[in-house]
Nucleic acid binder design. Structure first.
Lengths: 225, 225, 225, 225
DNA sequence: TATGAATGAGGCTTCATTCAT
DNA sequence: AATGAATGAAGCCTCATTCAT
């Protein structure tokens, strides 16, 4: 229970002798900012928006509480910054890879899902998804941002995949084109399962996603090109 | 008042304070309890655990703050009571229906998904799912309870459905038996979509679940019996 | 920590089936009142005025919370009643015994101190003294009452004892006449020691009071009559 | 929006609240700590532990409520700090003086009692004694601390005084050696009297302690060396 | 730019008191 | 007369935010 952070009686101990800060390598502001966001990701993910304490973010980032406010207007701006910064990389790469991918749709999906399985279980970004699930409804602006930057782009990519596969005659059903959500739904399950039920029943994410690909491709009328 | 000392003489008397009252139409304790839980569901769903205020729960339930504590030890117990009471009905019905269902697996799934689509979008219980997603990791005990009462039973039912279909020769793949999570994954998406992205892009839940059933059955090697 | 009293979640358990009260032998109101005061003595002594809970007093007295208010205006009146009722007996007896006592002053003191030693350690009234010490300053009215009914009478008795002894030539100093407080001071120590330091160092109250009598009598110039 | 849900759109933003500020002349933490303890002594002495309000301590110390918690874990730690800091000085001085005292035991007692009479009536430390009497039983740890730091040392000093006096042949009885409590008992009375009964009957503390010394020395068989 | 002591609004919880039964 | 569910003021404590250094 004890916050571990607080003063615990001993303020008396001459804080005059302060000053020899831990880190200090004349760091770029941008680095500092990133460190804060990384710390915030962990803390917000662990405790949710309301439950997260600025002090904990600061401690984990190795800065003083006040420093946070030099980089972010307030707690909410920090949350927003958190979501903003953590979403770029994966999708961009997939979009580019898709444009250039020479092989079959099956092969592309196989590669993509392997990527994403890893994201869903190991990447710190997985917390972002859980944060959006838990807090998104209370932050419509951030939810909107997330929709634009991640969801709609992701679904767009999936639609493109389906469209090309249809065009090429690799699949015969347009169900995936109409409901691309069906394709990433299992990833949501995987992301959530880890935190909630892993201790009760382990989930073989890799295996599940392979099964998912298999079922879905066959279900969409896959025909080897 | 004088030197900041206070009363000194007769003031020693009245320590704490009194409390007037307004009475409400008498009601069964069980009703009262249910009202509180209903109010709590709304408030917790809106604000999350840490963000929810007991005062708001009380106001919405039409009782005084203190009354909550006559029915629940503390905020956490209220949250637990919330999850406990809201999970029973649906699953029990499906389990019973499955045991007695005379038609094909396809028909059963069709009926079940219609039920669940409704649950996922319109029932107040849908908030429970979102609460579990957002807060479950911080309440392992409640997550465990939810796993036992809902998740494992639900997956068990799905496994039974798959097993019977295989046995009957309706499907040929055991992928659904091994990863029943794949079958409900779209429901999770539907539940979450409503709160987060509905305003940006409407989702036809009914249509999506039909597409899901179609894809999945075909993908599992469905053969009309 | 758990108050043991509270509702603990379970209000739901049909309190309709209530009614079969524990005690119920059609008791006299005076008895009921006394029971409440006895319970209050214990509870107030244990927790102090502010720390004592009406609920605890009620439980210990075997009545409902509301019943307390049929016998006492409020918490403070209960406290006052407590002090009032618990002080009579001892002093009255000593005063009467003194008037009739045939033996020497030494003998009378010996008997009295034996009485008082018992009071100070075993009687429930000993708590009254501690309550007065701890809370008296905040309840000047009660302190005044206690002064009139106990302190001044007690000191009066001690003065009378000294006066008679001087008159009889049993002692030669009037110090005890001028400061009768000196005679009961050790009793205060004994009363307080029990609760605070007994576990650290046992105190032989009987022995201490005997030593006190011996020293004091000799110190006052005792001469066997 | 719809069915009494609440804000819905932009309201999700501002969760908690902000906080303006007024700054105080900067001060050493140790000073601040001492100020708080001084304020606490007054407030706790007036109201007892349960009755004291942290807000009152803060106001009297000239700081904000929250500041108290920078210096003390919680209310109990503040109480403990209070007792801890207020006990040192007097005893240490007496112990040293005793070791070096050239004169007779009678002379030493005379000096000591004069000191203590002052303490008992005028020093702010007198409140500590009353707090211990009233609340000590509920804080065994603090009572234990008080026993070790004050009571046992004080009694030890008194035993040493008696032992030396016996050895020197100044007194003949070992009663004071066996029950040193008898020697300070009147001080307890003096300390308590002030707060409770002074308004009803003034007590000449100085005179009483002189009488006490006289009686006791004679009672112990004093013989001018 | 960075710090962290200080602030004070606000949350959870307790409990004296009331009053319908 | 007795009950105990209900009330709501008030207390302890937390923590986002500020600002003097």
């Amino acid at each position: 229970m004890a916050s571990g952070e607080g003063s615990g009686e001993g303020g008396g101990a001459k804080p005059r002798t302060a000053a020899p800060t831990r880190r200090r390598a004349s760091k770029e502001p941008a680095d500092r900012r990133r460190e804060i966001l990384e710390a915030a990701l962990v803390v917000f993910a662990e405790a949710g928006f309301a439950g997260a304490r600025m002090q904990d973010v600061a401690s984990r980032a190795g800065v003083a509480k006040g420093t946070l406010y030099l980089y972010f207007e307030d707690k909410e701006a920090l949350f927003e910054g958190l979501v903003r910064q953590a979403i770029d990389p994966v999708l961009g790469r997939l979009e580019r890879e898709f444009a250039d991918f020479p092989g079959s749709t099956r092969a592309f999906l196989s590669v993509s899902f392997a990527h994403l399985a890893n994201e869903a279980v190991h990447s710190p970004r997985r917390h972002i998804v859980r944060l959006m699930l838990g807090e998104g409804e209370r932050f419509p602006e951030i939810a909107g941002f997330y929709y634009r930057e991640v969801v709609s782009r992701g679904l767009g990519l999936l639609r493109a995949i389906n469209a090309r596969a249809l065009e090429r005659g690799e699949i015969s059903s347009d169900a995936g084109l109409r409901f691309p959500q069906l394709l990433i739904a299992p990833l949501l399950v995987a992301t959530v399962w880890e935190g909630l039920f892993q201790r009760h029943e382990a989930l073989d994410v890799q295996g599940m996603l392979e099964a998912h690909a298999e079922i879905t491709l066959r279900g969409l009328g896959w025909k080897e090109p």
